[in-house]
């Protein structure tokens, strides 16, 4: 949600114990420039935010009942295992997983499009199961392993699915692509030899306004080493 992290996010990311390689880059990018400009404009808001953080530091109360943990409403430390690396972020319970990834960890590969679970642009995996990160609170992820688009390529080598997406030009504007790749890679994990119907079902929740579906189907089948069927659309 734009409302929860627009200005506070950059201030709070300093509380992160480890930051992914992508965000540590020192060269100026468009996003980095905008982020810097935001900090200047919002410095007073940040100070307010820090005071608020201290005031609400009654972060975690374990009630007399051992089966209840009360967290928040202010920021609390939450450990997230993203692509095999543990990160500790200071987040409010209302922070969605999408916001935690994008705003607090700087992993902007995951896109937020509709923010209501209706387009699947924000798809990530939890223990290899695809879910909408916009409809998941980061605080409830627990020990489940989060997979994002940043973790698909390994050791600088594109995943065969990514290679096939490039070869088949399976994108136009590209905004739905990270979600598409996450849905398709999760499919190949559980079903290495899918049929066209399987691929269609796997991306049935992923909206693409450019309508690149036939190319997504072809790319995924090729990555799986499955011969394309006659009519791919």
């Amino acid at each position: 949600m734009a409302d929860s992290g627009q200005f506070t996010g950059d201030g709070e990311s300093s509380a992160t114990t480890s930051v992914s390689e992508g965000t540590a880059k020192s060269n100026i990018s468009r996003r980095g420039f905008l982020r810097g400009a935001g900090i200047t404009a919002a410095s007073t808001a940040l100070i307010d935010g820090v005071q608020l953080l201290h005031r609400e530091a009654a972060a975690e109360t374990i009630k007399g009942n051992a089966h209840v943990r009360e967290l928040g409403p202010g920021p609390v430390p939450v450990t997230l295992n993203v692509n095999g690396t543990e990160h500790v972020v200071q987040i409010e319970p209302r922070t969605t997983l999408a916001d935690a990834l994008r705003t607090h960890l700087g992993m902007t590969g995951t896109k937020v499009v509709c923010d209501h679970g209706a387009c699947s642009g924000c798809t990530v995996t939890l223990d290899k199961v695809p879910v909408n990160s916009c409809m998941t609170l980061a605080i409830e992820v627990g020990s489940r392993r989060i997979g994002t688009i940043e973790g698909i390529a390994q050791n600088g080598q594109l995943h065969p699915l990514q290679v096939a997406f490039v070869k088949h030009d399976a994108m136009q504007c590209g905004f739905c692509t990270p979600g598409m790749v996450m849905s398709c890679s999760a499919l190949l994990e559980r079903n290495p030899k899918p049929t066209l119907a399987d691929v269609k079902k796997a991306v049935s929740g992923n909206l693409c306004r450019c309508a690149t579906y036939p190319k997504v189907f072809a790319a995924t089948l090729e990555a799986a080493g499955v011969a394309p069927e006659k009519s791919i659309s």
Partner: peptide, 17 residues
Amino acid sequence: MNKFIFSDCTSVDAALS
């Protein structure tokens, strides 16, 4: 989305309380 307390429960009795 408004701020809220996240009350994480591990039993039905706890949730009811």
